[in-house]
């Protein structure tokens, strides 16, 4: 078995005339936590959408878990073991926590096709277990998530990734809208994942957070990967220079 969980080669996405992602070559190893940084509009979310089957790529190749893949939809990516927390969360406000966790993958007590009876108890217990694993505490699992704080909603979205056995977790700006304490909570979850050896791609603008949490930083600029930096070999200033374009890297020389 190869050591590489995810690999992309020449991954490209055009939206009409907008070249949102150009020729991205990316690798993620088992147990590795990698940050993707870059200005707004650099193509970070676009990159995630191509890997998770939310959109179909214009060109390029993707290997996941040793196999070349081309997911037809987000559910296929999930079935293969990629769990993503999208920037727009993708939660249903009027559903409770277990229903959101199991949205689209409900546990069934008795199969009657579309009218199957739900295993409500089973889903609630699994939810409690998942929240325990991520050290998230949410009062009253049975109430709708509409009235929850941004942090709690984010935790629900993250706990969703932890509920299902996954091989890769992707988080797109998970703390962008959160306060200090809530950010700390999410960072704790990320550390737990690291301890469990679960690989992660973290998109973030928060330099301190990135240096705290990840092993490697990949910088996107104008749809291209412009730097691939091991944490020990770089610092905040250096990364900012790549983000703003003040500095460029010879990618061939930096290949890991």
């Amino acid at each position: 078995m190869s050591d590489i969980v995810l690999k992309t080669e020449g991954l490209t996405k055009h939206y009409g005339g907008v070249h949102a992602l150009v020729d991205a070559n990316f690798e993620l190893r088992r147990g590795e936590h990698v940050a993707i940084m870059g200005d707004n509009g650099a193509g970070k979310s676009t990159f995630v959408r191509q890997i998770t089957g939310v959109e179909r790529r214009t060109s390029g190749k993707v290997w996941f878990d040793g196999q070349e893949v081309d997911f037809a939809g987000p559910l296929h990516a999930r079935e293969a073991g990629i769990e993503a927390v999208f920037q727009n969360l993708a939660l249903a406000d009027d559903l409770d926590v277990p229903s959101n966790l199991f949205l689209g993958r409900e546990k069934i007590l008795f199969n009657l096709g579309p009218f199957s009876i739900l295993d409500r108890k089973g889903m609630r217990q699994a939810t409690e277990a998942a929240l325990k694993r991520t050290a998230v505490k949410i009062p009253n699992l049975g109430s709708t998530i509409r009235n929850m704080s941004g942090g709690q909603r984010q935790c629900v979205a993250i706990a969703r990734t932890a509920t299902f056995a996954s091989k890769l977790i992707i988080m797109d700006e998970p703390t962008a809208a959160l306060g200090v304490q809530e950010t700390a909570q999410v960072e704790n979850i990320v550390r737990t994942l690291k301890d469990n050896g679960e690989p992660l791609i973290l998109i973030s603008h928060n330099m301190r957070q990135v240096f705290d949490l990840v092993d490697r930083i990949v910088v996107f600029r104008r749809g291209r990967i412009v730097a691939n930096l091991r944490k020990e070999e770089t610092d905040g200033q250096d990364v900012v220079a790549y983000i703003t374009g003040a500095k460029t890297q010879n990618m061939a020389a930096a290949a890991l």
Partner: peptide
């Protein structure tokens, strides 16, 4: 209240995009 059918009604009415992203 108790079936997949009902859950999907609420999910789609609440956030159609999220429901679609979840594979419904």
């Amino acid at each position: 209240k108790y079936t997949l059918y009902g859950k999907r009604c609420y999910a789609i009415g609440s956030n159609e995009e999220a429901a679609r992203m979840s594979g419904i």
